[in-house]
Computed example of a mutant assay.
Amino acid sequence: MNAQRNRAWRRFKSKMKIKRGSRSQRSQEKPEKSWKLMYIRSEKLIRAKQLGMDYPAKTVRQVLDDEQPLGDK
């Protein structure tokens, strides 16, 4: 038997393995992107907004400096 194993055959076999294994649910979930892999600042800002995070992260000193004293209005 001369079986040609082309891209379609490999994709079919891959799908069959996923259906049989318990990895089927895990393969559908994508891992969170690493901030190091996101190059453009606008992409980082959009993703941080989706996650409900502050970006760029502020230090304690920056947070304290941003707060207005109660006496000054």
Rank of each mutant, 00 (worst) to 15 (best):
L70P: 02
K17D: 08
L64Y: 11
Q25W: 00
W35P: 02
K30R: 13
S27E: 11
M16E: 10
A57L: 08
R26K: 11
L51H: 09
K19C: 02
S34F: 01
K15F: 03
K33I: 05
K73W: 14
D54Y: 12
E43G: 04
A3K: 13
K15A: 03
Q25V: 02
S34H: 01
T59C: 04
R47C: 05
Y55T: 01
V60R: 12
Q50E: 14
G21A: 12
S34L: 09
Y55R: 04
K30S: 07
Y39L: 14
K13V: 07
R20G: 04
G71H: 11
V60H: 07
Q4D: 04
R41I: 14
Q4Y: 12
Q62D: 11
V63H: 06
R7N: 08
M38N: 02
I18E: 02
D54R: 13
I40H: 13
R10L: 13
A8W: 14
G52H: 06
G52V: 10
E29N: 07
P69S: 09
A48N: 03
A3G: 06
D54A: 08
Q4H: 06
L37N: 09
Q50I: 09
S42M: 05
S22N: 13
Q4T: 13
L70H: 09
R5G: 03
K44Q: 15
P69R: 08
R7T: 09
G52A: 10
I46F: 10
A57I: 01
G21H: 11
S27T: 09
F12S: 07
F12W: 06
L45H: 11
L70A: 15
P69K: 05
D65A: 14
M38E: 08
E32Q: 13
I18M: 06
P31H: 01
I46P: 02
Y55C: 03
